[in-house]
Design a protein around this nucleic acid. Structure first.
Lengths: 354, 354
DNA sequence: GGGGGAGGTGAGAGCGCTCTCGGTGACGGG
DNA sequence: CCCGTCACCGAGAGCGCTCTCACCTCCCCC
């Protein structure tokens, strides 16, 4: 086994089955229009020779690759190291597998990488792309949009001014935030603070918006900007306690932040939820269940999000192939309904912290 | 832009530059043996037309793909959702990018997926594979070994009886464990317990072995089997306290377990490190730095591990191409030194818990 | 009973690239 | 001055597949 055995070709299978290449090809690709006995013979030949189609040769003529790129634009280790993308990938992978597509992973590291990714996508090596870019000012989405590759974004892109037809899938950050804050208000809390994420990310901005929807102009006094990390949560909470010692509830922009918040509250001797009620966001189970007390939080189904994105993309690709004129946005107006941005629901998970 | 513009071919570039296809090909692939003025002309033509080589056509003739598969065999969500693989992927991605290779991600879900993955790899769609399989009884490594694809494993494979030549990269789990336990002993602790990971994973088994190296036959009294999770750590620690109330140190098989341990100790009113010293493993920063008190732990450089695996694989592939007979193990005996299993060092990181 | 389908099957032309191999010009030595 | 050498370049043959046609049976219907 020291050198790779030359793998059997269509030709070889055809010879063995006593038919033409064309017939073997037909059988391999579904077998329509071939009479049963022949199908059987070809199948056996394929089996016996251990034939596997050469994807390169196939792509060369079909111009399809049965592969999609997943682009994760994340300069910051922190975010990448959290379970978010892992779950997302899982969902994507499942769905791609179910449709016999491969997943080509592209991680970007800093600015110069953007060009590389754009070039790769423009190079037509994949049929489509799923792109995660969290930052408002990220040039990557624009580049990709320009590359002419069917694309679905994960999370609302920052520059989405609503006029361009981008297809994206996002969680209902705003609605989830509203639910969280309403819950706190419903508990009778009157001084509900919000510790935000980095506001150059749309998810953080949308959560803040949701908070404002409920609290109206609670004033900037109760809003502290932070960065989605436990450490950031700690700092923000200290600030907050110093400035407004009478706060009786905190809506943290994510669970990691909330864990920092809880730590500071404990350290300062405030009881949770009696003195201060705390709600997080994400329902990162390993975090939320392990805090003390267990965290009430807003759940978003990350894995499902990946799955939906994939389904959307594949649907768009499929339309392309069936000849419908599908603009870059993955096919917008077409029978079967336009492919539109999708917002997935979020739900409040009540545990002990609020 | 509604329909994809036909992308320029070599032919087109050749025409524009006024040379033959062959010359363009030479230039595109390094440009050796082509006179400078021609190189220049071809470069300009490539630039002007925005030419990008068609990878499928190229693969068809070279039989190389410049792509490697990363196989993550992990039925359990828990493990996949921790930062481990994310970091690993990051390292792999960086290294692959540096060598102009693509990363094809294959996640397996349950048994039937194994066949799919094996078929894919055997299909010769990628040049090599990086495989992560944590469980001793996992059939996947065997299947892959059989597929005849150059492979490097992440972590010592369970069936590695030392006789077959598998190439793997692993952290020095055993040595790290020894360092941890020695540290505890050096602190004057005499009843050092160990809470293990799932012992069907080699990493967990190796850590236990390291513990035994130092403690000798401390007896099974002080060893509790667990599962690498915080919840598991809690249960194990409760058990332990009930059975041996006098334990004065715990070496937890990973940081997650340690976090559970710390929680139980706090709940039972034991001070850390005064009453019970605790050491973890992994140095998962977001966990270890955020525990109370911050966790002393054994660091392994996960990202580096991914990088090394990749380098090893690419080196093996390179040898193949340069004609040296390279057996499946990615090329074992060859000038430049055999490609051998690599064990990366681990270091003790002292924080407050021990 | 013959003509027209319809349903199967095969021949052949590429897809865009690499790579061998033969040809060509410049140059130096005999 | 001629020929061998060398460095460079182009022609052409595929790589393994799909897909369009043309062809060839049958079978059905008039």
């Amino acid at each position: 086994m020291s050198d790779t055995v030359p793998r059997p070709t269509l030709e070889a299978v055809a010879a063995r089955a006593g038919v033409s290449r064309a017939t073997v090809s037909r059988v391999v690709n579904g077998g329509d229009g071939v009479r049963e006995p022949l199908v059987e013979r070809v199948r056996r030949a394929v089996e016996e020779l251990g034939y596997v189609p050469n994807q390169a040769a196939r792509s060369l003529v079909t111009k399809r690759h049965d592969a999609v790129a997943v682009v994760i634009a994340e300069p910051e280790t922190r975010v990448f190291a959290d379970p978010f993308f892992a779950l997302q990938l899982r969902g994507i992978s499942k769905e791609l597998t179910a449709h016999d597509n491969q997943l080509v992973l592209l991680l970007t590291e800093g600015r110069d990488d953007h060009a590389r990714v754009a070039r790769y996508l423009a190079g037509g090596h994949v049929d489509g792309a799923l792109v995660f870019s969290l930052h408002v000012d990220d040039p990557l989405p624009g580049l990709i949009q320009g590359a002419g590759v069917p694309t679905v974004f994960g999370g609302r892109p920052g520059w989405g001014d609503g006029t361009r037809d981008v297809v994206y899938v996002d969680s209902d950050n705003r609605g989830g935030a509203r639910a969280a804050v309403r819950h706190l208000v419903g508990l009778g809390r009157t001084r509900v603070a919000h510790i935000t994420g980095p506001l150059d990310q749309t998810s953080a901005a949308d959560r803040l918006q949701g908070y404002r929807d409920v609290m109206g102009d609670a004033g900037p006094r109760l809003v502290v900007e932070s960065d989605f990390t436990p450490g950031g949560g700690e700092r923000a909470m200290r600030d907050l306690l110093d400035r407004c010692p009478d706060v009786d509830a905190v809506f943290a922009a994510n669970d990691l932040t909330a864990s920092g918040v809880l730590r500071v509250l404990r350290e300062r001797g405030r009881r949770v939820p009696e003195d201060v009620a705390v709600v997080g966001f994400d329902d990162m189970v390993p975090v939320a269940e392990q805090t003390d007390p267990p965290l009430t939080t807003v759940r978003q189904d990350i894995e499902e999000m990946g799955r939906i994105m994939t389904r959307l993309l594949l649907r768009g690709l499929d339309r392309r192939n069936t000849g419908e004129a599908a603009p870059d946005g993955v096919g917008t107006t077409a029978p079967g309904g336009p492919v539109l941005p999708t917002v997935l629901p979020t739900t409040l998970v009540r545990r002990a912290s609020a």
